[in-house]
Amino acid sequence: MAGGPSLQSAGKYRGEDSLLPYTKIRNESEPPWKNQPYWAYIVGLVILAMGIKVFVDVDYELARKNIFPGIWLTIRATIIAFGLALLISLIVGLGQISKNVVAKNLSRAYIEIVRGIPVLPLIFVLALVIIPDISEAAGAPNSVPTDLRAILALAMIYGAYMAEIIRGGVQSIPRGQMEAGRALGLSSRATMRSVIFPQAARAIIPPMANDFIAILKDTSLLSILGVLEITRRARQYSASSFKFPEAFFTMTFVYLTLVIGLSILLSMFERRFNRDRVGER
């Protein structure tokens, strides 16, 4: 065979190559039914089934009446805690990347301490010891109601978690961006505002949305402090009526609905946020 080696290698190459059309065809002919979001249908069906039970079954009527009033408090606690946590995370997160030695080290210490203690014990300490002590030291003992103390505790905890998200987001922006801004004569603050933050926001928003949902779920921990949110009301109702299945089933239905609803809202927000960003990744 003339030119043996090169022909051989060409043939071998062609042989390997010939696998490609197969994989391609298989990918292209992937039947549409395979790509359906069945998980969403399942979740939807579960919520629907639970909803029918909770709303139609007469045994659930009392459970509904006792537990549903807590929904508003759960939502309110979530929003307030997330808002405050966002504020704390901005201060602590930026403190961490600041060049100021005091700000940097205080921020770091705050985050490490909060992350080093489980959420529930920390809620106890913050809501029942530290915040009352602070209000007493400020000359106004017992001035902060329990509900607010509990929400503040949750906000302080998530503030530390979310500060890490802010720090990570800002640090994910390549150094060249700050340098380009500074080289143009922009101050460090102006570069942060116009160049770094808008880009960091994209890295920050998805994990922030996660923590928003986590806060919603963790408001259930406030039940331990007697805050009359959903979990507390379900426990009270079940304890007094012994209708455990009704109470806890209603409770889980409410949480699942709230969490799924919030996820949908947040993913709509994320999509809106990304829509303005044509042409870049």
Partner: peptide, 20 residues
């Protein structure tokens, strides 16, 4: 420094355009 830098343009190896 900001004022002085405004008088000096700088072009980087990696362009460093603002992608957003």
């Amino acid at each position: 420094l900001d004022e002085a830098r405004a008088e000096m343009g700088m072009v980087f190896q990696g362009f460093n355009l603002f992608p957003h």
